Simulated assay, not measured.
Amino acid sequence: MNRPFDMELFLAGVLSGSHTTRQRHLRQAKIVQAEIAKHWLRENPWTWKRKHLTWFLEYRLSERSEVTRYYYVLTLRLLAQRLEAPWTFSL
């Protein structure tokens, strides 16, 4: 039986800041996960590559405000940190 991937447990080691900030990062990471799973059929962050996160930033957030994109970039940086990947993302 497959259980859904627990994003909260995955990010637990790299999340810091206030409760609200941690909740925002978790919410956004789950949105990223759902979009990548829907488009690329990769539910587990361990199988993601930089192109998946770049795709999300460029195509799924293209209509969003710069402030929203900035907060998602912060979340993507946390995901890359947790994956121990040297990826960088910018607006």
Rank of each mutant, 00 (worst) to 15 (best):
R22T: 07
R64L: 03
W87M: 06
I31S: 03
Y72C: 12
G13D: 08
W40D: 04
Q23F: 15
R64F: 14
W55V: 15
T54K: 07
R22Q: 02
V73M: 05
V73I: 10
W46A: 00
L11F: 10
P4H: 06
Y71Q: 12
E43R: 02
K30E: 08
W48Y: 11
S62E: 15
I36K: 05
R82E: 15
H19Q: 11
W40S: 05
R82P: 02
F56S: 12
T88F: 10
G13M: 06
R27A: 09
S65G: 06
K51S: 06
Q81G: 05
V14R: 02
A34N: 08
W55Y: 12
E66W: 03
S62H: 10
L91H: 11
V73D: 06
P4D: 08
K30Y: 07
E63M: 09
A37H: 13
L79P: 05
Y70P: 08
L26D: 03
L57T: 08
L9G: 01
L11I: 10
W55K: 15
T75D: 11
R77Y: 13
L53W: 00
S62P: 02
M1V: 07
H39W: 12
E58S: 03
A34Y: 13
K51W: 00
T54Y: 01
Q23I: 05
M7G: 04
E35Y: 11
R77S: 09
S90T: 12
I36F: 02
T20Q: 13
S16Q: 14
Y59V: 03
A29P: 06
R50G: 00
H52M: 05
R24Y: 15
P4K: 07
R77F: 12
E66M: 09
E43F: 11
F5R: 02
T21K: 03
F10R: 08
T88E: 06
T75R: 12
W87C: 00
L41I: 12
L11Q: 08
V32L: 03
F89S: 06
M7S: 02
R27L: 09
